[in-house]
Structures are given as structure tokens and as C-alpha cells.
Amino acid sequence: MRLVEITDDNRDAVMAVRVHPGQERFVASVEDSFRHARESPDAKPWFRAVYDGDEPVGFVMLSWNLTPGPELRGPYFLWRLLVGAGLQGRGYGTAILDEVVALLRAEGASELITSCVPGEGSPEPFYRRYGFVPNGETDEDGEIILTLDLSTRP
């Protein structure tokens, strides 16, 4: 598994990676993620395709070292993590987070923040298993805010 920059050559293949239809209310598409990144340059979007060999299997997007503000959480915020529908349950999500955590530690980051929509089918249990904990806050959309202390991950 490796994180790969998105270029004109691989953009369409990466945008074709989709979650299960029942998960779409919890995880925005890659195409929507690109739009959100364009619309929110102040959030310092950083994104990569996730490849296994020559096949795109997922996508990850973070706010990278931003100055937190009233509407921006950070400095490191996990906006998007998705693994293709037919490839879930194979450890890709954990491997992606392991790689992101290693990159963040190399930057000197101490925590990673994310949010998720609560409910049946939410990725919240996955994030909790990984070590994220709710910080007691919700955002303006009612999403639960979770924090990962980077010093606690091996």
C-alpha cells in the first residue's frame, strides 16, 4: 500500500473508487472531496490516492498544518478516508492511517482530529478501534469530533 499524488493521468481512476452505496451518507466521494478542496483553500487540503500495486484502492484527504480558527479544526484534520467498496475489511483503512500517522509524526504533529456522522454504518467504530476518542464536541453539522493522540500509536 502506498500514497500517490493525484495527477491528470490517474485522476479518473481515483475518482472511480467508491464506497458501498449505504456508506455514501457518511463518506463523500473523491469527486466531492476535490470540489471541497477547491472551495476551501484556507483549510490547506492535502490529498493522496491510495494504491495497492497499480490499482487505486482508496483516497485520503487532510487539512495539513493549518492555523485553527472558528471554522477550521487542526492543525491536522482528517477530512476524508475512503476505501473502495469491494476492498473493505482487508486492512487498507488501518494501513492508510498508519502511513498518515507516520507522516504527521515526521512533521512534529501531536494529534490528528477527525469527525464523523453518528449512526448505523458510521465509521466511528473503526476510528475508535484505531485509537481516536470523542473530545465531547460536535461540529455545525452534528458530526462527532474525535481526536487521536499521536504519542499513543505504536
Rank of each mutant, 00 (worst) to 15 (best):
Y92S: 11
G86T: 14
R129Q: 15
G69A: 13
L62K: 04
T114L: 10
D98S: 08
V117K: 14
P70W: 14
G89A: 12
D32Y: 00
G131A: 02
G131F: 03
A37S: 12
R48M: 05
Y92C: 04
P45K: 04
N135E: 07
A109R: 07
Y130T: 11
G108A: 06
V101A: 11
P45N: 04
G108S: 06
V100G: 09
N65T: 02
S40H: 15
L81I: 14
Q88N: 10
I6N: 04
L97I: 11
V60Y: 01
S40V: 02
P21G: 08
P45I: 04
P41H: 14
D52R: 15
P41L: 10
T7F: 08
S122C: 03
G121C: 10
K44F: 01
T138M: 03
G108C: 10
E107R: 11
P70V: 15
V117L: 08
E31L: 11
L3F: 14
E39Q: 09
R90P: 07
D42F: 03
G84R: 06
V133K: 14
Y51R: 13
E71V: 09
V101K: 12
R18W: 06
A28M: 14
G121N: 03
A109W: 07
E99Y: 01
L104C: 12
D9T: 13
T67Y: 04
W46V: 04
I113P: 00
V14A: 07
D149A: 06
L82V: 12
K44L: 08
T152F: 00
I113G: 00
R73M: 11
G142C: 09
T138Q: 06
S63E: 08
A43M: 10
P68T: 02
R11M: 13
R128W: 08
G119C: 07
I96A: 03
A43K: 04
W79V: 11
Y92I: 10
L112I: 01
G89D: 12
Y76A: 01
I96N: 10
P134A: 15
V117Q: 12
F26G: 08
D149R: 05
F77L: 11
R105W: 06
L62R: 02
I144T: 14
W79F: 10
D54H: 14
G119K: 09
